[in-house]
């Protein structure tokens, strides 16, 4: 397993380079433009000048190599300098990856937003998993019971009604009509005492619950299906015949063997926390990474989108590797050698 992990990690490096190149190519080909949001009163020659000042006058391979240099060499160096408070070489003139819209280093923007994203999305994911697994297990164990039917109905509605809609319903109901929760996330809010903590909880409830519902619906379906598959297997009968307690049959044998698809779905979902939930963040105005990404895409802010997407790609590769390793732990029969 250790050798396998090392080999996969080594293989990930060329993969990620290919991915970064393809992302860059797609962003370059995409027909939206950084001057697209400027008022029409700004004449075309000025727009052309702005494009050149952003470095768009240079050929595509050079721009890609520049980004590689900035991201793979300059940014890590800069991080090391900040952590250890030293300076390596000519740190004053080292170019960092600069966003076109804000003219500030992309990595700083990401660092500024990471806490909000992790809190809101991470929490919604955790809640989603905590709801989904019990519901999935019980639904499968008592297949076609009333609990199962209701669970199925809610999760289907939860999945088929998009978050832009559930979010809006929540705002109209809880903010406009009842006035319980704020509809706009205050990102300058700092938790200092109990009252401000309570405010923080109130402003997080709606985005977290909307996302958790969506995640839980999907996850609980896979959990239920997988449990059903395993419940009818021979080993379950054997375990019961051996006189094992029903609880331990269910939770130790069946659950463990049913987790493989669930682990896959969770591993696919976790990088999404960093990519942000674009629509939900837009609706509730949580200044997460998803909102940063959508603003970047709308404004054709190529360095910003490239960097965010690439970090996202790294996480995907990483989490899929973790999932593969977990498969081996959950089911020792799986061998990769």
């Amino acid at each position: 397993m250790f050798n396998y992990t090392i080999r996969r990690l080594l293989f990930a490096i060329p993969t990620l380079f290919v991915i970064s190149f393809l992302i860059f190519a797609i962003l370059d080909l995409a027909p939206n433009d950084p001057t697209g949001n400027l008022p029409l009163t700004i004449p075309p020659e000025v727009r052309e000048n702005i494009r050149i000042s952003l470095g768009l006058g240079e050929p595509f391979p050079i721009r890609y190599l520049k980004w590689c240099q900035q991201f793979f060499i300059n940014e890590p160096l800069n991080l090391i300098e900040q952590w250890f408070d030293i300076s390596i070489g000519d740190s004053e003139n080292r170019l960092r990856v600069q966003s076109w819209a804000t003219r500030s280093p992309v990595v700083d923007l990401i660092v500024e937003r990471l806490p909000q994203t992790l809190w809101v999305l991470g929490l919604s994911y955790v809640i989603g998993i905590l709801i989904a697994i019990p519901i999935g297990v019980i639904s499968a164990y008592k297949q076609y019971s009333i609990f199962d039917q209701i669970g199925t109905f809610i999760s289907m509605v939860g999945f088929s009604v998009p978050t832009f809609f559930t979010g809006l319903v929540c705002i109209v109901f809880f903010s406009s009509t009842l006035g319980w929760f704020p509809s706009i996330y205050d990102t300058t809010h700092e938790v200092t005492d109990l009252a401000s903590f309570w405010f923080q909880v109130k402003q997080m409830i709606m985005p977290v619950m909307v996302l958790a519902l969506f995640n839980a619906s999907q996850l609980s379906r896979f959990m239920r299906a997988s449990m059903l598959d395993n419940l009818s297997q021979d080993y379950v009968r054997t375990a019961r015949a051996k006189g094992l307690k029903e609880r331990s049959v269910l939770l130790i044998h069946v659950l463990r063997n049913s987790l493989i698809p669930v682990v896959t779905v969770i591993a696919l979902g976790l990088p999404q926390i960093f990519a942000g939930a674009i629509i939900t963040e837009q609706i509730f105005r949580v200044n997460g990474l998803g909102q940063l990404l959508i603003i970047g895409i709308q404004g054709a802010d190529i360095p910003l989108v490239q960097t965010l997407t690439f970090i996202f790609a790294v996480l995907i590769v990483l989490f899929n590797l973790i999932a593969d390793i977990l498969y081996g732990m959950l089911d020792p029969r799986i061998r990769y050698e």
């Binding site: 293989f11 995409a30 996202f312």
Partner: peptide, 24 residues
Amino acid sequence: GPLMRLTDLFLALPLLPLLLVIIM
């Protein structure tokens, strides 16, 4: 290996710009 790396690639591609390119 190859097929799963291809999957990783597709998972990583930014959807919106990709769609804009496809339209174009």
